Deep mutational scan, measured.
Amino acid sequence: TEKQERAIEYIRRLGYSEEEARRILKKANGNPDLAKEIARRIG
């Protein structure tokens, strides 16, 4: 989804690889607090 793409872009800007960014997002899917934090940061 567009939100996922924005989140991946944001995480990659922090210096993670695409693969790492996707792994972090997968974790965020099972972790509402982390997901909220990422969403808050990407606006």
Rank of each mutant, 00 (worst) to 15 (best):
I24Y: 04
R41A: 13
K3G: 13
R40P: 02
R6H: 11
L14Q: 04
R23L: 14
Y16E: 00
R23M: 14
I8S: 02
N31P: 01
N29V: 05
K36E: 07
L14M: 12
E2R: 11
E37I: 13
I42F: 14
A35W: 04
A35C: 06
A21I: 07
K27Y: 15
L25G: 00
A35K: 02
A21C: 04
E18R: 07
L14A: 03
K36L: 14
R6I: 08
E18K: 07
K27I: 15
I8M: 07
G30N: 09
R23F: 12
D33W: 10
I42V: 11
R13Q: 14
R40M: 13
L14I: 06
E18F: 08
R12Y: 04
I8T: 03
I8H: 03
A39N: 02
K36Q: 08
K26H: 11
Y16P: 00
A21D: 00
A7R: 02
A39Y: 02
G43W: 15
G30Q: 05
P32V: 12
I42D: 12
R13F: 10
R40Q: 12
E20R: 05
K3L: 15
S17R: 04
K26P: 00
N29D: 09
Y10T: 05
K26M: 13
L34I: 10
E20D: 09
Y10L: 05
A28E: 01
G15T: 00
E20A: 11
R12K: 14
I42P: 10
A7F: 06
A35M: 04
I8N: 02
I38H: 04
R22W: 14
L25W: 06
I42A: 14
E37W: 10
T1E: 11
I24K: 00
E19N: 09
R12G: 03
P32Q: 04
R23C: 08
R6L: 14
E18W: 08
D33N: 09
K36F: 10
L25H: 01
Y16S: 01
A21S: 05
A28L: 04
E19W: 13
E37C: 11
K26R: 14
E5I: 12
R6F: 08
G43H: 15
A35N: 01
L25R: 00
E20V: 09
I8E: 03
S17H: 03
G30Y: 12
I38Y: 06
D33G: 08
T1D: 14
I24V: 04
R13E: 13
Q4T: 12
K36V: 15
K27W: 15
E9Y: 06
R12E: 05
K26I: 11
T1V: 12
L25T: 01
L25M: 13
E5S: 09
I42E: 14
R12M: 15
I24A: 02
I11N: 00
L34W: 07
R22D: 04
D33T: 11
K27S: 13
A35Q: 02
P32L: 09
I11W: 04
G43V: 15
E5R: 15
A7M: 06
G30F: 11
N29R: 13
Y10E: 09
R41F: 07
E2D: 14
K27E: 13
E19Y: 14
I11E: 00
K26C: 09
L14P: 00
G15E: 01
R12D: 00
D33A: 10
E2Q: 12
R12S: 05
I42K: 10
R41M: 12
E18L: 13
L14H: 03
E37S: 11
E20K: 05
L34N: 04
K36R: 11
I8V: 10
I11L: 11
G43D: 12
E20W: 09
K26F: 12
E18Q: 08
R41P: 04
A7N: 02
D33Y: 08
T1C: 08
L25K: 00
R40W: 07
E9C: 14
E37K: 14
A21G: 03
I11V: 02
R6Y: 08
R13V: 06
R13N: 14
A39C: 05
G15S: 01
K26G: 07
I11G: 00
Q4W: 12
D33R: 11
L25N: 00
Q4N: 09
R13W: 13
G43F: 15
R12H: 04
I38S: 03
A21V: 05
R6D: 14
G15Q: 01
I8Y: 08
R23W: 15
A35R: 02
N29H: 13
E20Y: 08
G15I: 00
T1H: 12
Y16V: 03
R40V: 10
E20H: 07
N29I: 05
A35E: 02
R23N: 12
Y10D: 07
L25C: 04
A39D: 01
I24Q: 01
E2P: 11
I11T: 00
R6Q: 14
A28I: 03
R22T: 06
N31I: 06
A28G: 03
E37A: 14
E37G: 06
A21N: 00
A28F: 04
Y10A: 08
A28D: 00
A35H: 02
G43Y: 15
E37T: 10
R23E: 13
Q4S: 09
A7V: 11
N31M: 06
S17Y: 02
Q4F: 09
I11S: 00
A21F: 01
R12W: 03
Y10I: 06
R23G: 10
R22A: 06
R40H: 15
D33E: 15
A21L: 03
R23K: 11
I42N: 13
R12T: 10
E19G: 08
A35D: 01
I8K: 04
E37L: 11
G15F: 01
E19V: 11
D33I: 09
E19H: 10
L14K: 03
Y16H: 05
E2W: 04
Y10C: 06
R13P: 00
I11P: 00
Y10S: 06
Q4L: 14
K27M: 15
E2H: 08
Y10W: 08
D33S: 10
A7Y: 05
E19S: 12
I8D: 02
L34K: 08
R41Y: 07
I24E: 00
G43L: 15
K27G: 07
G30T: 03
E19I: 10
L14E: 02
E9R: 11
G30S: 05
K36C: 11
D33K: 11
G43S: 15
L14R: 03
K3M: 15
P32F: 08
R6T: 10
Y16R: 02
Y16F: 15
L14D: 00
E5L: 14
G15C: 05
R40L: 14
T1L: 14
L34H: 06
E9N: 08
I24W: 04
P32N: 04
I24D: 00
P32G: 06
A21Q: 01
D33P: 03
E19M: 11
K26E: 11
A39L: 04
G30C: 06
E20F: 11
E18I: 10
G15K: 01
E5D: 11
Y10F: 09
R40S: 09
I24F: 10
E18N: 07
A39Q: 02
A35G: 03
A35F: 03
A39R: 02
I24N: 00
N29Y: 08
R13Y: 09
E2G: 10
K27D: 09
D33L: 08
I8G: 01
I38V: 06
L34V: 11
P32D: 05
E9H: 07
T1I: 13
A7I: 10
A35V: 03
E5W: 10
R13S: 15
K36A: 07
K3N: 13
Y10Q: 06
E37Q: 13
G15M: 01
A21P: 00
K26T: 10
A28Q: 02
L34R: 09
Q4V: 14
L25F: 06
T1K: 13
G43Q: 15
K3R: 13
R22C: 09
P32R: 03
I42Q: 14
R23V: 10
E5G: 07
R22S: 05
I24S: 00
I11M: 12
G15Y: 01
Y16D: 00
R41C: 14
A39P: 01
T1W: 13
K36Y: 11
G30K: 04
G15V: 01
I11C: 04
G30I: 02
I8L: 13
I38F: 05
E5P: 03
E9I: 08
E18M: 09
A39S: 04
E5N: 12
S17N: 07
R41Q: 13
P32H: 05
D33C: 07
K27P: 01
K36P: 02
E20I: 08
I11F: 06
Q4R: 11
Y10K: 03
R6S: 13
R6K: 14
I38Q: 04
A7P: 02
R40Y: 07
L14T: 01
K27C: 15
K3F: 09
K3W: 08
T1S: 13
K36G: 05
R12Q: 12
E2F: 04
N31Y: 05
A7C: 09
R41D: 08
G30A: 04
E20Q: 12
R41T: 12
I11K: 00
K27L: 15
T1G: 10
A7L: 09
